[in-house]
């Protein structure tokens, strides 16, 4: 566990790069990313251990944000949020900061924010789902 925590602290910078590379594999042609070469492969490994740390039952647990899952789950969000503009009632969520995203969705899940549609959608997202979505939307562009 200590090892994980140290890695997270050390690799904050590579985190985004590693994640982008993971993101590349999200289209099907990207079997190619397996053969691009050792540099990307090592970045992918970095991505795998770059993670959000959450405290559960007194233990620090490493949680990897699964961007591919995030992309699948995001298709539900895009139905309504895909074309949001500055003055829309349904707000833009692309490029939203990861921690802000997590905070807002958790608040909907706890029914601390109003709007039954969002409360309903958040109700079936577990912490891994929310982390995956947050990681995806931080880098995804419309």
């Amino acid at each position: 566990m200590i090892g994980y925590a140290a890695t997270v602290a050390a690799c904050h910078d590579c985190r985004r790069r590693g994640r982008n590379e993971t993101a590349e594999r999200m289209t099907d042609g990207t079997a190619a990313s397996w053969v691009i070469g050792p540099i990307l492969r090592s970045m992918r490994m970095a991505a795998a251990i770059c993670c959000a740390c959450v405290v559960a039952g007194g233990l620090t647990v490493a949680r990897t944000a699964d961007i591919e899952l995030g992309r699948y789950l995001s298709t539900e969000c895009i139905t309504c949020h895909g074309t949001a503009k500055a003055d829309s009632t349904i707000p833009n969520i692309f490029g939203l900061g990861e921690s802000h995203f997590v905070e807002v969705i958790r608040a909907y899940r706890a029914k601390a924010l109003p709007n039954p549609v969002m409360q309903s959608i958040a109700s079936r997202l577990n912490d891994d789902d929310i982390a995956a979505l947050a990681a995806y939307f931080e880098i995804a562009k419309k």
């Binding site: 590349e24 042609g29 990207t30 079997a31 995001s74 895909g82 419309k142």
Partner: peptide, 22 residues
């Protein structure tokens, strides 16, 4: 339409993915 960042996209395009995947 949702796209990943431009950078990702160009990496994708450059790798001639269609050929590799088929």
């Amino acid at each position: 339409m949702t796209e990943l960042t431009r950078r990702n996209f160009s990496v994708l395009a450059g790798a001639s993915l269609a050929t590799l995947s088929t």
